[in-house]
Design a protein around this nucleic acid. Sequence first.
DNA 1: CTGTATCCCGTCCGATACTG
DNA 2: CAGTATCGGACGGGATACAG
Lengths: 120, 120
Amino acid sequence: MMDRSCPGTVEPILEILDGKWTLLLLFELFNGNRRFGELRRKLHLISPKTLTDRLRLLEEKGIVTRTLYPGVPLHVEYDLTECGKGLQPIFEAMWTWTQEHGAYLRKETNEMGQEAETVM
Amino acid sequence: MMDRSCPGTVEPILEILDGKWTLLLLFELFNGNRRFGELRRKLHLISPKTLTDRLRLLEEKGIVTRTLYPGVPLHVEYDLTECGKGLQPIFEAMWTWTQEHGAYLRKETNEMGQEAETVM
DNA sequence: CTGTATCCCGTCCGATACTG
DNA sequence: CAGTATCGGACGGGATACAG
């Protein structure tokens, strides 16, 4: 066990992970999608404004970098910084948890206590 | 590496962790504060309504349980379910990350690249 | 292709007062 | 002590059109 009794010690990361799309966006970056259009297509319900907002915020926090490749068709890539890559264990933990517990709480707010088998 | 290419596989947990106070609230539950008033005092800027909202939601998701101890001064305790306790690795990972990277990005969106030493 | 500008809307959250 | 009721406000986010 660690000393995590002070809520203030975790607030920085809460700011980073805050936002409706942030987690999914980071997942995409871990998966290798780095161009604006790619990310936009993957998060297919996100608006360009929102995507830009999130990207800029993560940039400010030092989680991602933005690289512009000049050219006729504009080309921009977003990459995780070392700091951003360090978030991976968190996502791995989320992934693991979802594998173990995520399935049976899909929509079972009612009274069914049985575990489901349809994960995907 | 794992196959986490499908964004849908992580959405359940995003729903759980969503909300301004949810992460801090869960941190408190890991720390052992379980009574309504305790939680309220720890998250000292939260309104009773919001706290109730979050608690109820986590209850629905199967993350916490609510136990009522009848008596003259009402006594209620919230506990993590097994499912909820399973979230701990995620929080440990967040804690670890904050230790390693959290310090120097407190408010350094500007141009200072020095690492800080005041963590707490 | 990669954004920005605007406007609007919904949701979450806060404050306060009140109840069992 | 542990909430509920109600209302209002702020902020994040969506849609769309336009720009470099």
